[in-house]
Computed example of a mutant assay.
Amino acid sequence: MSLPAELAEIAEDFNAMPENERLELLLEFSDNLPELPARYADADLERVEECQSPVFLTVEVAQDGDRTVGVFITAPREAPTTRGFAGVLTEGLHGLSAAEVLAVPDDFPSMLGLTRAVSPLRLRGMSAMLGRIKRRVALEVRA
């Protein structure tokens, strides 16, 4: 199973860098995590309990032919690693079809080559974010 183009490019970027520089790239994704749209300012978003920091997310699945997915995640600036993972997932998944999102391998976080740069707990948090996104997309597609 191959990754969607955007996620494949992100994984390639991480793996092309020396191991000691990958964390810097993750921090760039942290800086680029978009703010939530105003329509979610007072919304009750889903908490990702596996993350040490307060991370909340939601997805939108359009009623178009591809069931285009919108991914929206918020993470505090004081948690740049977690926020970076949120940025990777937002950039890599937002705009894909529901089928593409659902086909992303559950072990995608390990494909970034960060296993020695970040703690297993943080990787578990990213896996949890991906799992929740996929679960919410699956629920929307079935609805």
Rank of each mutant, 00 (worst) to 15 (best):
T115Q: 08
A98C: 15
G131C: 05
L130I: 06
M129L: 13
L130E: 04
G95P: 13
G113E: 03
P105T: 07
L139M: 15
R135Y: 12
L112H: 04
S127F: 00
E100G: 07
G113M: 02
V118A: 04
G131T: 04
V137F: 06
L96G: 05
D107S: 06
H94R: 11
L130M: 08
L139G: 14
H94D: 15
L139E: 15
F108W: 06
M111W: 01
R116L: 06
P120S: 13
R122Q: 03
H94E: 11
V101N: 07
T115N: 12
G95N: 09
G92K: 04
R124S: 13
E100K: 11
M129K: 08
E100Y: 02
L114A: 03
L102Q: 14
R116E: 12
I133M: 04
V104E: 01
K134H: 05
A98Y: 12
V118N: 01
R135F: 11
P109N: 10
R116D: 12
G131Q: 05
L93C: 11
L93W: 00
R132P: 00
S110N: 14
K134A: 13
T115D: 15
S97A: 15
L121Q: 15
A117F: 00
A117L: 10
R122Y: 00
F108M: 11
S119V: 05
L123N: 10
G95Y: 01
A99M: 13
D107N: 12
S110E: 10
R136V: 05
A98D: 15
A98F: 09
L123V: 10
L96S: 05
G125S: 08
G113A: 04
